[in-house]
Write a protein that binds this DNA or RNA. Structure first.
Lengths: 210, 210, 210, 210
DNA sequence: CATGAATGAGTGTTCATTCAT
DNA sequence: TATGAATGAACACTCATTCAT
């Protein structure tokens, strides 16, 4: 993922030693904590360093500027998310389409919900960022994984899988995010989740993919 | 819509005279332009005033602080959007469900696409804002309009319309936003739009609403 | 008193008509109220005008700038104070020295204490002002009145009355102000007042004036 | 003295290293210079920093806001003054009362006169400040010192020393300040000083303390 | 004359970034 | 290499004053 980072957003050094990794982790953790606690406009480099237990100078050794830190944080988050989705996809190779849909929704939904505050905080971070590359790369990675999964479905007929895949991914991810942004009461959220799965199945049945 | 604004975010005076309205419009326009051109972090009160052709002081006469300006801008945008959606809903009272779906998707899609840069700029603005109230109010307004529309459908069977309505709205809006955030090539976007309509229809058929 | 005002601090027009006097009074009153309530740094021309029930423009008709307003306010205050002192002095022409001392202390003490908040507020106002002329003029007026009074004392021997007068006035006024600035408990204040009178009498006795 | 500072007026860090002390001194000095030269309303943080030869940022490292700077300046001034008075008091332990009076007047008078402009400038500074605590603490310290001195007088009879002490301190300090505010010609000032001492002696004699 | 909207220089304060130690 | 004091451009916001209506 970091390979797609625009030159000026790259972290200064890839941490190879254990100490460096620990430092970077501490910085990330501090950033998230502050973001969640105080919102993005109270996030200052000094505070991050302080909370992370390092000096500003040291922080600038790892991240040449604030944007780079935020960029890396987002990259890492999307990386983890990609991995989860890929894992789900791999785990469902050869399964029936309905199971795939359910698994995909569940994975994404849980990822967003588990640490909702972090998710929200990261969204807010994106403003100061040129993260199109990040998103595009994330999308590509996910598309590949889901496409491969769907292609392997036990009950799939060969059709325009690419289009179906794009539709499903966009609809699922978009819906989850939207559901997540409105402050719906938990029962409504649950219901929505069920309806979404239902809708995707209906779609697959109607397109004749299945 | 402005009635939901938290006290501290309220605009200072509602412009009654023509000149005042023109000033406020100029300020809004300037804000949008700067937002689109330079991004949110270069948006300073001084620059907005300058570009709007008024003095900072004048600006502060209308908006007690920067947040209030941004808030008002968002409120206005959502207001216009609400109106469009409501218009569409009213125009399709009594129509068949499929036509409603198509109309709803088209309205929302066009609204987002017409001035895509503005849309994007406003999204980025929301970070510095406590706009939950705004979003909630927007959602409520839209929900009401669409629900009434769906209830009037010529081919609707009485069912759990509220749930169906929430699902459709969330899916449509979420999908559009997501499609919009990925930089998909126009043909893919078009295809996606068709698929989305198709999906909604399949969902309605499957739920037995129709 | 206003005759000593430096040119640039002069009020714009001497109010001759009843309406004008009322306006000026309202402005003065508003100023004092705001000063007492919010302190000098929250005293803005707009707020004064608003509270006084006139427009800023009108206010600027009477006072060419903020300093002029403050200057005039101080002048008026000192004018009233001078008059009180003069009245006391006249009333005690020919009285014995001790009675004069007591009367002088009482008059000044009461004037400061009656509306302590106003007094304090005005002191704080003086910072932004070049009020030396005001003070000098006040001092001269008071000196003349007290000197004349002391000269008329039934039990005065002719001596260096000018020096004695200066001493008494300076000591009394200085002590009152100092007592006033420390937040002494009322009993201590009362005691102090008695001691001050006692001290002045002892001084007069010792200098052989009496 | 600094221990009495309200929390929000506290200086940010107590300078321990030589460099820091020098910086703080430079800031204080610059403040005084500007205050004397241009008056309090031209005293801006930027100008202070500039004149002190540091950046604004550095200044804010030592003083969290302008008020804190002014507060610290006053505190320091009163601290020095307290020390001078205490020194005088200690130096006259066991002396006769008249000598004490003379010494006290001289010390205070000189302190005020030596750098009259600074004194005046600091007075004007107090307006924007909540310095009651400062004044109270100063008064308490001085009261204690003078009381101890008077109690040790070789010719003192035991009487209500506390009251006498309060009276003397208030009268002396008040008179000096008042004399100082009127722009008396130097000979008059000198005469006044003599009369003040004379008055205090007469008071002591009359009260039977001596 | 009275009004009060408009002005814009000026203010206190922040914070990403650097660099001497 | 790590530190954190120093920097200073940049910002949001105020308010005395003016002048078109």
């Amino acid at each position: 993922m970091s390979s797609v980072a625009p030159r000026h957003l790259k972290a200064r050094k890839t941490p190879r030693q254990a100490r460096a990794t620990a430092t970077v982790d501490a910085i990330f953790e501090a950033t998230v904590q502050l973001l969640v606690a105080d919102g993005p406009h109270r996030l200052t480099t000094t505070r991050v360093a302080e909370r992370a237990g390092v000096s500003v100078g040291t922080m600038y050794q790892y991240f040449p500027h604030k944007q780079a830190l935020l960029y890396a944080l987002n990259a890492r988050y999307l990386d983890v998310l990609s991995e989860k989705i890929e894992a789900t996809c791999h785990a469902h190779h050869g399964a029936p389409l309905d199971a795939m849909i359910d698994a995909l929704i569940e994975t994404y939904w849980n990822a967003k919900t588990e640490r909702a505050d972090v998710t929200r905080a990261l969204y807010r971070t994106a403003v100061e960022l040129d993260n199109e590359a990040l998103i595009e790369s994330f999308a590509a990675r996910v598309d590949a994984a889901t496409l491969a999964m769907f292609a392997s479905a036990s009950d799939a007929k060969e059709r325009d899988l690419a289009s179906v895949n794009l539709t499903l991914v966009t609809v699922i991810f978009g819906t989850v995010r939207n559901a997540f942004e409105r402050n719906l009461p938990p029962p409504a959220v649950e219901a929505l989740r069920g309806q979404l799965a239902w809708m995707c199945r209906a779609y697959l049945a109607a397109t004749g993919v299945r």
